[in-house]
């Protein structure tokens, strides 16, 4: 499923590649805006349509990432991990990357709702995480990261 999400999201990269350089540059602001909507669409697919509410999810990221190739992050969800009520999934997106999907974690009712990973960030942007609970509700947190050197190559 998440594979499909990213192939949808890479459309922006294809379109950019097709345009002449100057035209593409002129379009940049509106393209960046479209990416946020695409990230919203991608989240909607991953959450089965549940609209994420603000809260419960804390993203721990550096304020400034000097090297966008390796940006450490921790997602903490303020929720128990019992059979009756647990965090089923945590989806992480970087909406300013060529393809916003970063990683999805799928959890069981064990341990605590906290995960750590490292991501690439192409530029300064909002990183977003949505947690889906066992009752089907979805919760979102986000954090802006300033990126000194982008990490997506090209």
């Amino acid at each position: 499923m998440s594979q499909d999400v990213n192939s949808d999201l890479s459309r922006r990269g294809v379109l950019l590649g097709m345009g002449a350089g100057a035209a593409a540059l002129a379009l940049m602001p509106s393209v960046a805006h479209a990416t946020r909507e695409e990230a919203n669409d991608a989240f909607a697919k991953l959450t089965g349509g549940a609209k994420p509410q603000a809260g419960k999810v804390t993203l721990k990221l550096p304020e400034i990432a000097e090297n966008g190739n390796t940006v450490p992050f921790t997602v903490v969800v303020d929720n128990p991990m019992t059979e009756a009520n647990y965090v089923k999934a945590i989806h992480v997106m970087a909406e300013g990357n060529p393809a916003p999907g970063v990683v999805s974690y799928f959890l069981q009712p064990t341990g605590k709702a906290e995960v750590y990973g490292r991501m690439r960030l192409a530029k300064t942007q909002d990183v977003r995480a949505v947690a889906v609970l066992s009752d089907g509700s979805a919760w979102e947190g986000k954090k802006e990261v300033k990126v000194t050197i982008g990490g997506c190559g090209g």
């Binding site: 940006v71 990683v103 999805s104 974690y105 069981q108 064990t110 605590k112 990973g117 991501m119 690439r120």
Partner: peptide
């Protein structure tokens, strides 16, 4: 206990830390 689906934006030498009881 846990699984992850990763995309191209996961850094080289991917690290994944999580918790179990």
């Amino acid at each position: 206990l846990f699984h992850a689906e990763m995309h191209g934006a996961v850094s080289a030498n991917p690290a994944t830390n999580f918790f179990i009881t």
